[in-house]
Design a protein around this nucleic acid. Sequence first.
DNA 1: CGCCCGGTTGACGAGCGTCAAGGTCGGTGG
DNA 2: CCACCGACCTTGACGCTCGTCAACCGGGCG
Lengths: 216, 216
Amino acid sequence: MPTPVLQSSLRQFRRYEHLVKAGEQCDCIYRIRDGWACRYETLHDGRRQITALYLPGEYCEPHWLLSGRAELAVMALTPLSTTPLLLSEVHRPQDGGVKTMLGAILQNLERQTQWIIRLGRKNATERIVELFVDLRSRLGSDDDTVKIPLTQREIADIVGLTPVHVNRVLHRLAEQKRVFQHGRTLLATAHVSGIIRQCPSNVTEMNDEKATSDGW
Amino acid sequence: MPTPVLQSSLRQFRRYEHLVKAGEQCDCIYRIRDGWACRYETLHDGRRQITALYLPGEYCEPHWLLSGRAELAVMALTPLSTTPLLLSEVHRPQDGGVKTMLGAILQNLERQTQWIIRLGRKNATERIVELFVDLRSRLGSDDDTVKIPLTQREIADIVGLTPVHVNRVLHRLAEQKRVFQHGRTLLATAHVSGIIRQCPSNVTEMNDEKATSDGW
DNA sequence: CGCCCGGTTGACGAGCGTCAAGGTCGGTGG
DNA sequence: CCACCGACCTTGACGCTCGTCAACCGGGCG
């Protein structure tokens, strides 16, 4: 058990450690300081789908304010540092803490709507590119490149594909200089979205050229 | 423009009429009396994805309470009869109207999470069956069969498939007596889920037997 | 030093999309 | 009452995406 939870105390999790397991009661909402977390479900046959990502600065599962219960498990994808906000604390001071949570809930609702559209109607390349575009904007990084601390299996479980296919798509994106690999870290460049292209090929469509496997 | 909106007045829509278009301001939440509605998005190339269904008894887009704005268009899938609830009315009487809306928002959030899992990790048959199971329980019908007033194109836009493939899956389900067609109306039986099976074949897996086209 | 996780790559096939040509039913106008 | 029309459903042929299986590699860590 962790230390007694105080306002603005810290709580840390190791990689792949659970913040909550499916079905547990929740007495606090975690504000992410550093690291990434995800909500996910594992089917009986082992298939897994990640249904939400939580990044630094965001509130992890703000709707616990309304339900007090985790339907799905949440775990750290990286070493994670959070400040837990007790639900009772959020409720009492009518300083707008509740309003902040409701806004966060609304944002998650819209994010989930966008993911339904992507999973239902977009192909592998579109899904992966739009994931990276979303991550870039949420990380608020105007840098040239953003670090993406996800394994290919994790990306696969977000975008509803297999790790093998994610690997092939990433290689094609790398050929087009839309992503890079630095060591084992994935970097998404400022033109992941593919808007910037001087070659005559089409902007939005993907052609099927075989990956020439020049090691990224 | 409709008649001035009064508490518990009625507002009707024709099939395929819009309750709101994308981006519009919303001053009321519609409680569905009769008929079905959906939220959807159309991509530039014509692909469409339905991201929410609203059935009799449910509140259409309760999160407008928080945002006051429709991100996506909402339209009637059948002739529709609703009672609009003014946002100002919901706010004022602290009799629990707000609480009801927050509960409805929470439920939609969980429904969307389930759809992300289905679209990401389930095959065509699983998606369609689980849609029907969901509809059966939401319609609260313990009847033998439930009427599903959706065209195959609409089902396709919900489950992220093409109408042609939906057609083939429906025929396979019909062979197994899990759905029926009465005239042009689709009926889902009490054992759509496929739990009830006396034949030795597997419960959850689908076999690929060709449809023998005996006209349902 | 060896193990294990994660990434890489090829061969192959299944599931689903695309295209295209009917078919059927209900509504509508003459 | 009938002819026509437009949605919607049906069905076959074909092929692209993506999944599966399997082997291998490379580096970090105990």
